[in-house]
Computed example of a mutant assay.
Amino acid sequence: MSAPLLEVCVDTIEGARIAVQNGADRIELCASLAEGGLTPSAGFQKYASKLDVPVYVMLRPRGGSFIYSDDEKNAILEDARTVRQNGAKGIVVGAITTNHTLDTVFLKDVVEIAGLPATLHRAFDTAKDPFKALEEAIDLGFERILTSGQQPVAAKGTELMRDLVSAARGRISIMPGTGITPDNAAQIINETTADEIHSSCSALRQPADLRDSNVILGFVPAGGEKVTDARLVQEMKSAISQISRIAS
């Protein structure tokens, strides 16, 4: 029997270190989580590769929709060529066509070029037919789908996620994410029967001094900035450690 895994998404070196030290089983490495996560720098990737858990690197050149131009696709492909040498153990990627289906031709190229295990991110949640997208993701060789059940937060999408777990029949992992906290993690896992969850485990850190030049000039938000919180990682890990699944 094994407890569900905890993946923590981070966008700073400090956050990556805190997440691992406090129980994260895997890291999703990003830049700019405020925009949903973008491709992190090569230097950040190389730093994170020294951590004691697998690190999956986000491949996303900008915020907004998951419909990409040819130039943006080329940028993603170029990043996919370098993540392995930067030490990544996997990639996180997704792309959608104007018809709201997975961009399977492009995603096939990305997965093949990276040559690493791959997570299909929440671009999946914008696909008009999630069960068709599920089968396509399996055919493309993705090992998991990060999803909120096509809802703004995972707690509202548990029914679809449970149906996806059932339809997947162990061929791919369904990983709930978005709005997951220590208070609702166990319920989401139980309702979806998922074997892993995804969270930022972040809290708002207020500036020490509102008169500081970094705040005045707008580099640090006066209302505070979200950072990886050691206590939340610990509490999330504790919440899911009470649940056991039969290892597949």
Rank of each mutant, 00 (worst) to 15 (best):
I113V: 15
P117C: 01
R26C: 05
H121T: 07
T192L: 08
R81S: 15
A24I: 05
P182K: 04
A16F: 00
V8C: 03
A222D: 06
P117A: 02
G94M: 03
A208L: 13
K226I: 10
P117I: 06
L146Q: 10
K226C: 10
V227I: 15
R171W: 11
R211E: 11
A127Y: 06
P61T: 04
E112A: 12
L59Q: 02
A118I: 08
C9R: 07
R245Y: 10
G15E: 04
G149H: 09
M175G: 02
E143P: 00
F131K: 10
A88H: 10
S65K: 10
I27N: 11
D229R: 10
V215K: 13
T101R: 11
S200N: 02
R231W: 13
D212V: 02
A222G: 09
P130F: 08
I91N: 08
S49P: 01
T192W: 04
L204M: 15
Y68T: 09
F219S: 00
T101E: 15
G15N: 07
A239W: 02
L51S: 06
T104G: 00
A137N: 11
T158Q: 11
G223N: 13
L102V: 02
S32F: 05
L232Q: 15
E136Y: 05
I13D: 01
G36I: 09
Y68S: 10
K226H: 13
V233R: 09
A208F: 10
P182H: 14
F131T: 03
T82N: 03
V111S: 02
Q150T: 05
S238I: 01
C9N: 12
I180C: 09
R26D: 01
T181S: 14
R122Y: 00
Y56A: 03
N86H: 12
A19L: 13
V8W: 08
S202C: 09
G115Q: 06
A185I: 02
Q234S: 14
V20H: 07
